[in-house]
């Protein structure tokens, strides 16, 4: 019978973690290129709980992984010429201090030498993985849907867009960056369109998150209630057995 308490506890731990993830989604409701996450759960295969004479099998619940929804966020027009959004699958590649990183946050600018960089100062890379330099004196930058940049009639480079055969290869690295944690190689994203002067918003759906939050909080309460009544049962059992003697 005591297992019920521990099963309940395992459920509560998972619910707390789920709540943490929902809180992170809601905190990033306005973060450019943010991808919403949810927690997947599994019955813990390692530690099946034993019941004496009870129905089998009793199993604990454990966090299984984070499901990241790479669906498109809304595209918002900003009018800034170096703001870019990817319409479709794919990522911009930037040069981080510890190797290449991938992002869908296209709020780019130039550094004092004219190099195209993120707001954090990381160089944005082109198709072949080299940096892009813009000469501000040559006039307005226009960017085509395939990422090719031009100033007037002169081509100045092509912003690279990359995709992965399996996006599970990417882990979040903070600062709106993703890190490739597999041995998959990024492939050019040919089907995606680059939109200049637009930013991709976060794909968090606030209503959905709030609903899930309510769900989590209620599930937590009912688990607590279940644990309470289990504890009640054992207390009463002890009381009665004690009287019989």
């Amino acid at each position: 019978m005591d297992n019920a308490l521990y099963v309940g506890l395992s459920r509560q731990i998972v619910l707390q973690r789920e709540m943490d993830i929902i809180a992170n989604n809601i905190a990033n409701v306005d973060t450019a290129g943010f991808k919403v996450e949810s927690l997947m759960q599994k019955t813990d295969p390692g530690a099946p709980a034993v019941t004496l004479g009870g129905p089998k099998p009793v199993k604990f619940v454990a966090p299984d992984g984070v499901a990241r929804n790479f669906g498109q966020g809304s595209l918002n027009s900003t009018g800034a010429p170096l703001d870019m959004a990817i319409d479709g699958q794919g990522f911009f590649q930037v040069q981080g201090p510890n190797g290449p990183r991938f992002t869908r946050d296209g709020r780019f600018t130039t550094d004092p030498t004219g190099k195209l960089v993120t707001q954090g100062g990381l160089a944005v890379l082109d198709e072949s993985g080299s940096e892009i330099t813009i000469d501000a004196e040559k006039g307005e930058v226009t960017i085509g849907p395939d990422g090719s940049m031009s100033q007037g009639r002169e081509a100045v480079g092509k912003v690279g867009m990359f995709t992965f055969a399996n996006q599970g290869a990417l882990a979040k690295d903070g600062d709106n960056l993703f890190k490739n944690v597999s041995n998959l190689q990024p492939q050019p994203a040919t089907d995606s369109k680059l939109r200049q002067g637009m930013l991709e918003g976060s794909n968090v759906k606030p209503v959905l998150e709030i609903t899930r939050m309510v769900e989590v909080s209620r599930a937590y309460e009912s688990t607590a209630k279940m644990m309470d009544s289990t504890a009640d049962l054992s207390r009463r059992a002890v009381d009665r057995l004690g009287k019989a003697n």
């Binding site: 992984g65 790479f70 707001q119 399996n166």
Partner: peptide, 29 residues
């Protein structure tokens, strides 16, 4: 910008299907 992520369970990189929802390890931001 999102803040750092704490990894509780490293990515096993198990792909579900061709959909857009991708499972990874347990990373909490």
């Amino acid at each position: 910008q999102d803040l750092l992520y704490q990894t509780f369970e490293a990515a096993g990189t198990q792909s579900s299907d061709q959909g857009t929802i991708v499972p990874t390890g347990v990373q909490v931001g």
